[in-house]
Amino acid sequence: MSKSARPTVKDVAQASGVSPTTVSFVLNGASGHVSLETRERVRQAARALGYVPNGSAQALRKGSSRIVLLNVEGIPASNSLGSYIRGLDAELTVHDHVLLVVHGHLSSQTLSDVAQTVSPRAVIDLADAGNADATADTRTSLDSFFAQADVPVQYLVGKDHRHIAAALPEVAELQALAGLRGRLMQHASHAAGLARCATFTLPVSLDVAEERLRSFRTEHPEVTAIAAYNDDLALLLLAAMRRLGLQAPADLAVVGFDDTLHGALFSPALTTVRIDAEAIGRIAARKALGLPSIDSAVEPARVIVRESG
Score class of each variant (00 low, 15 high):
T138M: 12
P76C: 14
T138V: 13
I85N: 00
E73C: 12
V101C: 04
A90H: 02
D150Q: 11
G63Q: 07
S78E: 03
S119G: 12
R139N: 14
G63I: 15
V153P: 00
V151N: 15
L88C: 03
N71I: 03
Q58L: 10
G74Q: 04
G158A: 10
S56M: 15
R139D: 14
N54K: 09
A77L: 15
Y155H: 10
F146I: 09
G104C: 15
S78M: 06
L100P: 04
S108N: 13
G158M: 07
L142W: 05
S56L: 06
E91T: 05
L70K: 05
A115H: 03
N131W: 09
Q116R: 10
E91A: 07
T110S: 09
S83C: 13
V151K: 05
S80R: 00
F146Y: 10
R66W: 13
S119H: 02
V102I: 10
Q58K: 11
A57N: 12
V68Q: 01
P53L: 14
T117H: 13
N131H: 06
S80E: 02
N71L: 07
A59K: 06
N79F: 03
H97V: 09
P120C: 08
S141M: 14
I67P: 00
H103M: 10
A59P: 09
Y84L: 01
Q116E: 10
P120R: 00
N131V: 15
N131Y: 15
S78Q: 03
S65G: 05
S107I: 15
D125Y: 06
P53G: 15
G55A: 11
F145S: 09
T135I: 11
S119K: 11
V94W: 15
A59E: 06
S107N: 09
F146Q: 01
T135H: 14
R121N: 01
S107P: 04
A115L: 05
H95Q: 10
